[in-house]
Nucleic acid binder design. Structure first.
Length: 258
DNA sequence: ATGGTAGCATCGCTA
């Protein structure tokens, strides 16, 4: 079973590229972020024609997350699970696909450490943990993938000194990530590439950052131990960031043994 | 120190 996460930065602007990539890579489960679509504008029929069932949680204009699956799509939960304060924005959707409880998450950016949006980000990450406690357990097969807008450690950014005092690398954000690890999640890319440095999943459109190798690894596939054990391989498809009208994020892939 | 690009939707916001 091949599972991927990809922040597409507008599914409307990216649909052709996404379709082409799906035809080439043939993932079984696809976690999308930043669809920027209302639910009634989500191209479910397009994906159906490619063999995918889908669940979308959108609001139009901004945010929006989706799950596509060829291996079943059951018990869909939009927003946080029952018992967790719902979020005003469309940033999480959860479903059971091929026996794995998967979530597609789009963690708030944070903007700046002194911005209210940063407090929203920290609170959102607290609620993500509460969601996991309410929805499932670490002994279950769980995979929470998406754009976390956090670089887990200093090897996951191009130049840590330049980023001091910025979001994505602050202690408080990384503490929230650690809380998810403490619950039972493991960073699959880091698990498979313990020594990797400067391998990124996002590059700013500006300043030719992609071509200069200046990015961050902020798109993560986090999984519980039973999924980690089944994982054979985890990569970031940097090629998908190339060419005309790319998303500013590259997809992250994992293959799970049956 | 600033502003650079992209998407959506306006004449600014978000990233």
């Amino acid at each position: 079973m091949r599972v991927v996460t990809w922040n597409v930065n507008s599914l409307k602007a990216r649909l052709e590229r996404v379709e082409g990539w799906l035809a080439e890579v043939r993932p079984d489960v696809v976690l999308l972020q930043e669809t920027k679509l209302a639910d009634d504008a989500f191209p479910a029929l397009t994906f159906e024609s490619l063999g995918y069932r889908s669940a979308h949680h959108g609001q139009g204009r901004w945010n929006g997350v989706a799950i596509l699956s060829t291996v079943g799509l059951d018990d869909v939960v939009t927003n946080f699970a029952e018992g967790v304060e719902p979020d005003d924005e469309a940033r999480i959707v959860t479903a059971t696909c091929g026996g794995v409880r998967v979530s597609s998450v789009y963690v708030p950016n944070g903007r700046a450490l002194d911005d209210d949006h940063y407090q929203y980000k920290l609170g959102w990450l607290d609620r993500l943990r509460e969601h996991l406690v309410a929805d499932t357990g670490p002994d279950e097969p769980v995979l929470v993938g998406g754009d976390y807008n956090i670089a887990p450690d200093d090897r996951d950014v191009h130049d840590i000194e330049q980023l001091r005092g910025a979001t994505h690398v602050s202690d408080a954000e990384r503490d929230r990530l650690t809380a998810l690890y403490d619950w039972g999640l493991v960073d699959l890319f880091r698990h498979h590439h313990p020594d990797a440095e400067r391998v990124f999943s996002w590059w700013d459109y500006r300043n030719g950052d992609f071509h200069k190798g200046r990015g961050m690894r902020i798109d993560l596939l986090l999984a519980t131990p039973s999924v980690v054990e089944r994982s054979e391989w985890c990569v970031i498809d940097r090629n998908a960031r190339k060419g005309k009208q790319p998303s500013d994020h590259a997809p992250v892939l994992v293959d799970l043994a049956d």
